[in-house]
Nucleic acid binder design. Structure first.
Lengths: 333, 333
DNA sequence: AAAAATTAAGTAAGCGCTTAACTAAATTAG
DNA sequence: CTAATTTAGTTAAGCGCTTACTTAATTTTT
């Protein structure tokens, strides 16, 4: 049978109020009764029901995490780092994969609100901000990670995606490449990376390839391969490809190989994220690294301080990407 | 402000009982009032508080999922497949990484019980079954996935790990290998795979390498590499290595490369799981595939039927692994 | 047309907890 | 030694819901 606060109170010959006080360490209780109650709690293996205390306005110690896809290594690594930090604070994560679908985003947001999660960490697309804005207005703790909403005042731990794209282009140009194709999905982060990429090109007066188009479908290996194949068999063949995430880059590598060419000798390939798979693929992928661990930690700390009501002013923490050179890029011969 | 059932009731000129009835579609309500209430709920954007109804014995529509490590591709892919199926039933997942640590396992179990999750899916080690047995006794819905407890009557969706190991050994032996090292971690699934592996060897009268030892630390690339290095530089050098998961296998591949040798020409490598990374590594990894999607779906369906109280008898569903031949294995020359 | 049966809605208790307000006992002050 | 203060613990209301029970209104039966 489930043991409640009443059972403990009866067994310890005190009122439930007293028990509640020793649980929460609030109010005044004598040393003796406190010890007595604690003994009984231990003996009965009493576990306070968090639903009940949540109903009374206490926290649920649960945070909702919305990401595009848990099976994507970047997001599973990010989720893990958030989880680890959350665990230190006694928090659990409800993780929801949205596939960048607005319906799923809103559905999950509603569902988690009903479940009284203490706060939300959003790493999904949210092209439609309506619901999120509303939540912010309602003072629901919401933090954004790995995404950025300029012009929207909301606590954010972002990556400088623009700089990431800029870095990628710069590296490739330094190697002598002039015809660089980009593989990207039409989501915020990728658009920013593309923007940074173009900026770098422009500064060197290099033309951006005119046959660019966004992939449709998920940022996975297959779509990356398909798009790379398209570029490589088109009439304006690139000498390098910048893919906006590692998965896409790996697809591109596969495409090059399938055409009987070599990476990086015939085509240089760059990725983005620096997930585990970047180190595994052959050749090891030159990529733009995101400080995943740090992002996870920072955003969790941020949401916790919001939940505690400490954080008054809104802040945007922008972390910087860095170039990780491996063997998938080489000077243009 | 938060809108409650009272607000709806007032606005619709009915009692909260009536509102509750239309929410849950229980009891008798006239068409007209029903429509009226629904209109008001929509208008006020009323979201029933699940804490409150959970307190009254209703479900929380939340399932606890305990896995060793969310950053491990096998488990993140499994988690995603469970999540997808859960979503169809309106359920959310609280995902906890245990790192195979009994303290974490028990801590999470307790925490999630306090949060009134409707059921548990366990994919962690649980070498210490005490807590789990207790929960089963208390009729808490618990299902096991990707793990097996023979001699323990509990609903399970398992993989035939023994067969997996057997398959791996058989394949390698068919290629002519006789000296096959095994890289494994001292956890249930790996022990079973090892057992199956040895069984296959025995049937062909081939001796198991005497210098075997379990890795310590996580089943990750580095430990795999380290152990492979140890085997390959020892005095009884294997011609093939069977690693009990893809990550370890990739470490082994890196070790071989580091020694200036070639996979599969000098050393054949096999993995286990058939995660995304098996397709990405060079050479593509011959591995034993787990039907991840299917496992996820099946275990979710299982726990749902337990939650609904439909499932009376305990069942163990054992899914079968299969060999996926790629290029990391070759005949012994 | 009155009694019986059916339908529609309301009343109120209670889920397990927190907390403000209160009482009683113990301590200190004057 | 009484009054003021502090300390320890209790009472009871209420968080937002569900549900068994009840009442009132309507329909059906004879």
């Amino acid at each position: 049978m489930k043991v409640t606060i009443y059972d403990v109170a009866r067994e310890a010959n005190v009122s439930i109020a007293t028990v509640s006080k020793v649980i929460n360490n609030t109010g005044r209780i004598g040393e003796k009764t406190k010890r007595k109650v604690e003994e009984v709690m231990k003996r009965l293996d009493y576990q306070p029901n968090m639903m009940a205390s949540a109903l009374m306005g206490k926290q649920t110690k649960t945070i909702g995490l919305l990401i595009p896809d848990l099976a994507n290594p970047f997001f599973s690594e990010l989720a893990r780092s958030i989880e680890d930090r959350a665990h230190e604070f006694g928090y659990n994560l409800v993780i929801c994969s949205t596939d960048y679908l607005p319906e799923k985003e809103n559905k999950y947001l509603n569902l988690l609100k009903r479940k009284n999660v203490d706060g939300f960490i959003l790493a999904s697309g949210f092209e439609n901000l309506e619901k999120v804005e509303e939540m912010v207005k309602e003072k629901v703790p919401v933090a954004i990670v790995a995404r950025d909403f300029p012009m929207f005042s909301i606590n954010t731990v972002a990556l400088d995606d623009f700089m990431g794209g800029y870095l990628a282009a710069s590296h490739l140009m330094k190697l002598g490449h002039q015809k660089i194709a980009v593989i990207a999905r039409d989501v915020w982060s990728n658009r920013e990376r593309l923007r940074g990429f173009k900026q770098a090109l422009e500064e060197k007066n290099i033309e951006f390839m005119s046959n660019f188009e966004y992939i449709d479908g998920p940022s996975h290996v297959e779509p990356g391969k398909k798009m790379a194949l398209k570029y490589l068999t088109g009439d304006d063949v690139p000498t390098a490809i910048f893919a906006c995430n590692d998965l896409l880059a790996i697809g591109a590598i596969q495409a090059v190989k399938e055409l009987g060419k070599s990476v990086p000798n015939d085509v240089s390939i760059m990725g983005f994220d620096n997930t585990l798979i970047a180190t595994i693929v052959e050749p090891p992928l030159t990529t733009i690294a995101q400080p995943i661990q740090n992002m996870g930690k920072e955003v969790l700390d941020l949401i916790i301080s919001m939940i505690k009501g400490e954080k008054k002013e809104v802040m945007r923490l922008t972390l910087l990407p860095s170039l990780v050179e491996r063997n998938s890029t080489a000077p243009l011969v």
